[in-house]
Amino acid sequence: MATEHLSPALRAPASSRPYAKARPGYGKRTAAAQRTPRPDDFALMPECERYIAGYVDRLPDGAAMDIKSLAKSLPLYGQMAVSSALKALGVAGHLRRVRCQTGDGDQVRWVSRTYWSRTARDNEWWHAFLTTEDSEPTPVAVPVPAPAPPSAEAAPHAPATPSPRPLAPQPAAEPEPTPQPTAAAPARVPQQRPPAAAPAVPSPAYLALAQLGRTEPRLALSAADCQALEPLAAEWFARGVDATYLTRALTAGIPAQVDSPIGFVRRRLTDKLPPHVVGSPAPAAAATPGRRLLAECTECGRPGAPEALPDGLCRPCRTHAPDTASTTPTPSAERDVHALVSQLRDLTRLP
């Protein structure tokens, strides 16, 4: 006989409200060197900041950190209170908002992130941390080496290469009993043929001249013309000019009919040679920018360098809200109210 258990089973705890997740690349990021959480974390802060800081500290990486999402998840405080609390946490050294450039090639976009630190950090630590995050190298795909060709032992069905084994026995009447010259002939054939020369990579100057005819048909150049004008065009590239600038300089304001394209282009390459700018940065360095990271003001979201936003605030936000107690004018005790009223009455009288 089965015995009925009278004690009810424990109910499963109610599932907590799921965190609002940010879009890929956005949201919360935990800073490095974090200690384990303790009950007295944020104990010295006011009640609102302590409540919001404890909630943000429990959020996982990638959670939404915008004001609307936090206010929607916190029933006790609205958006104004959340905004003020985030500003106070930024001044206390617990968070920094940044804009980070992600992507590669043409697929580049700016994302907003919020770095959170359970331990309050000073401005020097945040500056060093954000500088380190900015200088992180972009992951580069490691090329996979090509597989080695299978050997004769690994591929028994592959065609066998000439081996030093003796050939089949020849008849006794053969005048040359040893087939050594015949076996050695295939080895000398590759040595007699000259190696195939690798195709020369055209220079940027040559490519710009070759593409000139596609941009302007009146200046179409042949291969021999491009080789003859390549040194003159290379001088332009040596002075920091790119192919777009060179093409515009050569095709601007050309006559309706060009009898000699090579002579016209040679004259313009000589007469319109750009000046040499001393100390100009190399164009290759400007063409390959590194990963960029900008800090954001916690109050207004204005971007800037990390060292230009101490306490996570820009200069206008630091000076926008001065102490009201020190700026509110207080009426002087020695002021004569009756004399002031008499002066106002005299001003309102008609002449």
Rank of each mutant, 00 (worst) to 15 (best):
E4F: 14
S7R: 09
P18M: 01
K28G: 04
R29M: 09
A32Y: 03
R38V: 14
R38H: 03
R38Y: 00
M45C: 13
P46T: 14
Y55L: 15
R58I: 03
D66G: 08
I67G: 12
S69K: 15
L74H: 05
L74D: 12
L76Q: 03
L76M: 10
A85N: 11
H94Y: 03
L95P: 09
C100G: 06
D104A: 15
V111R: 08
S112H: 11
Y115N: 06
W116I: 04
L130W: 08
L130S: 05
P137Q: 05
A141R: 14
V142G: 04
A146W: 01
A148E: 05
E153T: 12
A154N: 15
A155Y: 13
H157D: 13
T161R: 10
S163R: 09
P164E: 01
R165N: 11
R165Y: 07
R165Q: 07
L167V: 06
Q170T: 11
E174S: 12
P177C: 08
T182H: 01
T182I: 00
A183M: 04
A184I: 10
A187F: 04
A187G: 12
Q192G: 02
A197Q: 07
A200G: 07
A208V: 03
L209T: 06
Q211R: 13
L212V: 12
R214D: 11
T215W: 05
A223H: 13
A224E: 13
C226S: 03
Q227W: 01
E230C: 09
A233I: 07
A238Q: 09
R239H: 13
R239N: 12
V241Q: 13
V241H: 09
A243M: 05
A249N: 04
G253E: 11
G253C: 00
A256I: 10
V258C: 03
I262H: 10
V265W: 01
R266P: 01
T270Q: 11
D271Y: 06
K272S: 15
L273V: 02
S280Y: 10
S280D: 04
A282F: 06
A284P: 04
A287D: 15
L294Y: 08
T298D: 09
T298G: 00
T298Y: 03
G304D: 08
G304Y: 00
A305F: 03
P306R: 07
E307F: 12
D311M: 13
P316G: 05
T327Q: 12
E334A: 07
R335D: 08
V337F: 00
H338S: 15
L340P: 00
R349K: 13
R349A: 00
